[in-house]
Nucleic acid binder design. Sequence first.
DNA 1: AAAGAATGAGACATCCATGTCTCATGTGAG
DNA 2: CTCACATGAGACATGGATGTCTCATTCTTT
Lengths: 184, 184
Amino acid sequence: MATDRDSVLEAAVGVLSRRPTAHLDEIARAAGISRATLHRIFPGREALIREVGALGLRRFAAALDTADLESGDPQAALRRLVDAVVPDAALCAFLAGENQLFDDPGINELWEIQDARVRALFLRGQQQGVFRVELSAGWLSEAFFDLVAGVGWAVQDGRLAPRDSAYSLAELFLGGALRSPEQS
Amino acid sequence: MATDRDSVLEAAVGVLSRRPTAHLDEIARAAGISRATLHRIFPGREALIREVGALGLRRFAAALDTADLESGDPQAALRRLVDAVVPDAALCAFLAGENQLFDDPGINELWEIQDARVRALFLRGQQQGVFRVELSAGWLSEAFFDLVAGVGWAVQDGRLAPRDSAYSLAELFLGGALRSPEQS
DNA sequence: AAAGAATGAGACATCCATGTCTCATGTGAG
DNA sequence: CTCACATGAGACATGGATGTCTCATTCTTT
């Protein structure tokens, strides 16, 4: 059952995103299974980490699909993306923290594809005059992901209410911290 | 000499912020010293990590001092903070990724102090009508630090030019991604 | 130049997470 | 009820990073 594997992976994220060096004992306990069973499902720690990363990328890709970034107003598209990705913010936080994953060619390629999709949205928005052109699409994409990861951490640590997370993320990223739009 | 220790710590950051599980061999080589000398300076891995964290917090505190957040226009103060903190963005990136450090009471307390200073700036800015009040000061502080860390990673990986980093950070955080100020 | 300290290189010993195994228990299907 | 199978618990071996040691070399200081 893929559901079984995924539920274990989700439990693993809860531990690993906070402590990347957590022992397998701890992860197994968090998943409610024994270390032996954990080993039966995933051949080893490396495989487990890779699978968690792959799950995170699958979820992120699914969120991009759901948001349908190519259609309609770029701003509305980005708000759809926020809503779609916030539930999996913890996965994204794990991805952001685990740079090591990007040594894997498969993971890296998959990531590049998703990142390109987000960049394309920003590029389209810039061409339509919706997003600012002084900031590169690459930086906008990067910063967006940083904030998604930040939301994931903040929610997990109880510093941000899950209910507020989508609003806080979208408003800050789109509108910034300033009340009145002044640009130096 | 504290300078010696700090130069080793800076080299350590360069390695650890990318691969938190890097071997001491690697860190020593990156610092241009032998593993033996590394052990002579820092009693062990744990101590080294803690010292790196402490250095990051010292630098961040120093940046807060330099920025003089209590004076003048809050927006100008935040721009001063950006300029002051960007050179040490890599340290901040390390801090953000190493949640484990916050188990140490000393580190945690020091962090709380600095975070409170940033929150106070946002609170002051909100009271003066400069910053948006729909976003909590806590979230603004958190998001700001997330972006600083993101800048650190992006610069280190060559995805963002150091020359652009301060501008990109300040503009996105203050003004957001939208060109025309629309709020839904 | 000579003495002292600091460093680098390498050889160990140790510890601990990991990986693998066995066995007892529990569970579900027939 | 019985058998097949999955799981949990624990023991055990292993590997690799860490910590400690020694010794030769280099640099500094006088």
